[in-house]
Amino acid sequence: MKRYFLILALILGTTGIAQNDKTIYQFKVENINGETFDLNSLKGKKVMIVNTASKCGFTPQYAELQRIYEQYKDQGFVIIGFPSNDFGNQEPGSNEEISEFCQQNYGVEFPMMAKIKVKGEEKHPLYQFLTEQSQNGFKDSEVKWNFQKYLIDKNGRLVAVKGSSVLPSDPEIVNWIQE
């Protein structure tokens, strides 16, 4: 009987079911000012994680991200921006330049993190979690371009992935925030 449970535990562990306990709360990241940002501080909030870029056709989404953030931040919703230069060299600036750009052009007040890799060999551990079902217990995905959105529920679990062309104000996203 013991052997049966050991085999069952091994099978469940390799299917990702046992990984469902993993959340974004296990991660600490660096914010755009070089300070540690503990994602554990977001417990009980819905979170949208977005990889951003300043010189992209989707860059105007910063305005909508800020608008949605302002509208729902007092209702337990947070947006976190992760600048990345992984697509077409569209985020070449330093963290300081990115911060200044976001503030001057879009009045960004939602948390912005330090520039990271969201794909490839040097992919940040948070993005490994977001893109690998074996870690997130939800689904495999690939960051295909700037402004891809990852929706995280109040328990820190990945629940949806939205492509770059899906606007932050898309009814499906807004309905999810309001649930």
Rank of each mutant, 00 (worst) to 15 (best):
Lys2Leu: 11
Lys2Pro: 10
Phe5Trp: 13
Ala9Gly: 14
Gly13Glu: 07
Gly13Arg: 03
Gly16Val: 08
Gly16Phe: 03
Ala18Pro: 05
Ala18Lys: 08
Gln19Phe: 05
Asn20Lys: 14
Ile24Trp: 03
Ile24Cys: 11
Ile24Asp: 03
Tyr25Ser: 13
Phe27Asp: 06
Asn31Ile: 03
Ile32Cys: 09
Ile32Ala: 04
Asn33Ile: 01
Gly34Leu: 07
Glu35Leu: 11
Glu35Ile: 04
Phe37Ala: 13
Phe37Cys: 07
Leu39His: 02
Asn40Thr: 04
Lys46Ser: 09
Ile49Pro: 01
Val50Ile: 15
Val50Tyr: 00
Val50Pro: 02
Asn51His: 08
Lys55Arg: 10
Gly57Arg: 06
Thr59Ile: 00
Thr59Arg: 03
Thr59Gln: 03
Pro60Val: 01
Tyr62Asp: 12
Leu65Thr: 00
Gln66Asn: 09
Arg67Tyr: 07
Ile68Ser: 04
Tyr69Gly: 04
Glu70Cys: 06
Glu70Leu: 07
Glu70Gln: 15
Gln71Ile: 05
Tyr72Gly: 10
Tyr72Asn: 11
Gln75Glu: 15
Gly76Ala: 06
Phe77Val: 06
Phe77Leu: 02
Phe77Gly: 10
Val78Asn: 13
Val78Gln: 15
Ile79Asp: 01
Ile80Trp: 00
Ile80Phe: 01
Phe82Glu: 06
Pro83Lys: 08
Asn85Lys: 09
Asp86Phe: 00
Gln90Phe: 00
Glu91His: 05
Asn95Cys: 07
Glu96Arg: 12
Glu100Cys: 07
Glu100Lys: 14
Phe101Asn: 08
Phe101Gln: 02
Gln104Thr: 14
Asn105Glu: 11
Tyr106Ala: 06
Gly107Cys: 11
Val108Ile: 14
Val108Gln: 02
Glu109Asn: 14
Phe110Ala: 05
Pro111Arg: 13
Met112Ile: 12
Met112Asp: 05
Met113Gln: 08
Ala114Asn: 07
Ala114Glu: 09
Lys117Ala: 10
Lys119His: 01
Lys119Thr: 09
Gly120Trp: 01
Lys123Gly: 04
Pro125Thr: 05
Pro125Gln: 09
Leu126Arg: 08
Leu126Glu: 03
Leu126Thr: 05
Gln128Trp: 00
Phe129Asn: 02
Phe129Val: 05
Leu130Asn: 04
Glu132Thr: 15
Glu132Ala: 13
Ser134Pro: 09
Gln135Gly: 03
Lys139Gly: 08
Asp140Ala: 05
Asp140Asn: 15
Asp140Pro: 14
Ser141Phe: 13
Val143Glu: 01
Val143Lys: 02
Lys144Gln: 15
Phe147Val: 04
Phe147Glu: 00
Lys149Gly: 11
Ile152Thr: 04
Lys154Asn: 11
Asn155Met: 08
Arg157Ser: 14
Val159Pro: 10
Ala160Lys: 15
Ala160Gln: 12
Val161Cys: 08
Val161Glu: 09
Lys162Thr: 03
Lys162Pro: 06
Lys162Glu: 09
Gly163Lys: 15
Gly163Asp: 06
Ser164Ile: 03
Ser164Val: 03
Ser164Asp: 06
Ser165Met: 14
Ser165Leu: 14
Ser165Val: 12
Val166Asn: 10
Val166Ile: 14
Leu167His: 12
Pro168Cys: 08
Ser169His: 07
Glu172His: 08
Ile173Trp: 01
Trp176Pro: 09
Trp176Leu: 06
Ile177Asn: 10
Gln178Glu: 11
Gln178Phe: 04
Glu179Arg: 15
